[in-house]
Design a protein around this nucleic acid. Structure first.
Lengths: 341, 341
DNA sequence: TACATAATTGAAAGCGCTTTGGGTGCCACT
DNA sequence: AGTGGCACCCAAAGCGCTTTCAATTATGTA
């Protein structure tokens, strides 16, 4: 069933039927009713490809999903997608997800953009000096970046959390508790958030005349195994750290396992603060020793970015171009006074 | 840059350029080279919407993502998606993901199908007597179901794991270890896999003249919190179970926390077998007491389903219509002999 | 040399929709 | 009666591609 058939069925022109469906004012209410009725009975749905071809709009936002045979799926991705979806469903938008090898992301993004399949783009996993920014700017298609790109002029639309502030605050808390030996369990070094978090820690330490020992910094994929490994290394250091900052609750999972295996009590022998993306699977309050965290909901960020993206496509009013969300510092049992030596 | 511009640039007709690009044999190799060269230089990419309109094919597979403000994102979804993506990227396929309220899934699937945006459909989270099956059959669009629908004639294309067999085997193992009091921590009751797993347990117990006490069966969302709750209830039973079967490692996470809090030693006071979807985040071998599991990779299932879907669209068939994968029973430390009373 | 045949290329129709640029009545006002 | 304005409706062009059908040139064959 297509427009032509439907209009013939109704004895109307395609024009009128199309107008009736799209809410144009110049169609008689009675005929509009008739059309709507016929749509219900026939189950007619406009062909999206044709619609897009004719209007240039498709009601879809595009994103690239990094993937490869060895590539681990990322819980954070799913959670963020849930947020995007929650908002998209309200506007009858859908996603076009282009899987792409992580090495091929710029090209994949470009292909996606000029494929004509999407109205707007979303990009995440930002790196320092991210090459995708230049490409996006050249594209004349709305986009929003999740995160920022260290070293690039911040003149692009983004939503980010205050990573530096979060880790600055967390570090200060630990300093106040008397800790002096710190370790940072971070995400991959090239990622923007990792850089900023490290800077936040360093800044807070510097205020007390302390510095972050490079041996006490790990950069790795945010999996529990990497957390375990990193923690094991930290614990073997001659002056082992008593305060651990952790870029994800996933890493914390492994880190805590390592600490337990070493017979250390969390919140007493060793203190830990993790960043919490509010993953439904890993609630810090459910850890056997509830975790002190810096918190910011990834899902909420997804919702907000979808709002901005869809709003821009629909030309529904101006949105702030740059948003920086503060995180909350939530104190639970995994932090305590530095142990007396 | 579109076909017209490109062909003018080359002094060729759109026909020839199109044919050159799509690998038709009747075009001179020299001109094909010339076209390919121009494509490289200009960065031309065909408009997918137009392509789809003209051919009816779009190189995309569609799926519905259940979502709603309160709806928890599901790690399993992300992992499965990673599998689909791994295969899709090899064929330059993409996904169209339609977020939809869980109550609206049939309609959403229908909308997606007739939107003309996708070449094939994938559906998961199958229920007993699933209403989507009838709809899919009426659609004349390729689809593959992940899982099956209990109570429906199995005449649709699916890939499923042998849930009944898995839990039958697991139960038998525990029986052999001398356990007699069993509990099953299952997924939501209406889901197909939950029904079959329960049947598997019941079948194995029946062989020994045992039955599954309804008080020892929980049906809940597969989150760690629900696992905790369910376990707490089991432990309060007058005759508390010594053998726990768990539909997911996520549930097991909570269950184990509850057991620990009750001072029970896993693999000694209480034995547990969980089904392992091979989530990168939750490796059963990394649990403080490594978990005995029935294993089947969700991601591998994603890859395979993508293969079948894409293969069917590309008519690179034929593919088996029904596939039932056996699971592996992997014994680790969370199972031990039943404690002497 | 003449003619069938193969190898290339093009013109134009069509995919299903939106939208521009007219119509056609009908009414109120001069 | 003539004019302008309104409320409705329609024919047809166009979005960017594929594909049918036809035309042109090159290559053999008798």
């Amino acid at each position: 069933m297509n427009l032509k058939q439907l209009s013939e069925l109704l004895g109307l022109s395609q024009t009128t039927v199309s107008r009736a469906l799209n809410g144009y004012p110049e169609v008689n209410e009675a005929t509009r009713e008739r059309v709507l009725q016929a749509v219900k009975e026939t189950g007619y749905r406009p062909n999206k490809a044709a619609q897009r071809l004719a209007t240039g709009k498709a009601g879809s936002i595009g994103l690239v999903m990094p993937t490869a045979p060895g590539h681990q799926s990322d819980v954070h991705f799913g959670e963020f997608l849930a947020g995007l979806g929650e908002e998209a469903v309200r506007h009858d938008f859908h996603f076009v997800i282009m899987p792409a090898d992580p090495d091929d992301e710029v090209a994949a993004l470009r292909r996606l953009a000029i494929s004509g399949n999407v109205d707007a783009l979303f990009v995440a996993y930002m790196r320092a000096h991210d090459p995708r920014l230049a490409m996006l700017k050249s594209l004349s298609m709305p986009y929003v970046v999740h995160g920022r790109s260290f070293g690039s002029e911040p003149d692009y639309p983004y939503l980010d959390i205050d990573n530096e502030g979060a880790f600055y605050d967390a570090t200060r808390l630990l300093l106040q508790l008397g800790h002096t030996r710190f370790a940072l369990m971070n995400g991959p070094m090239h990622l923007d958030f990792a850089i900023r978090r490290k800077n936040g820690v360093a800044a807070a330490l510097a205020e007390r005349g302390l510095a972050l020992d490079e041996n006490c910094v790990s950069h790795a994929l945010m999996t529990d195994e990497q957390g375990l490994l990193a923690m094991e290394q930290f614990l073997q250091l001659p002056e082992r750290p008593t305060a651990i900052l952790c870029s994800s609750t996933v890493l914390a999972l492994g880190a805590i396992r390592a600490a337990n295996q070493a017979g250390l009590r969390l919140g007493e022998d060793i203190s830990l603060i993790a960043h919490d993306d509010v993953l439904p699977l890993l609630k810090p309050e459910n850890f056997s020793v509830p975790l002190t965290t810096t918190r910011s909901s990834l899902r909420a960020a997804g919702v907000r970015i979808a709002q901005r993206l869809i709003g821009t496509v629909k030309q529904a009013g101006p949105f702030p171009d740059q948003e920086l969300w503060k995180t909350e510092l939530i104190v639970r049992a995994s932090t305590g006074p530095a142990p007396q030596v």
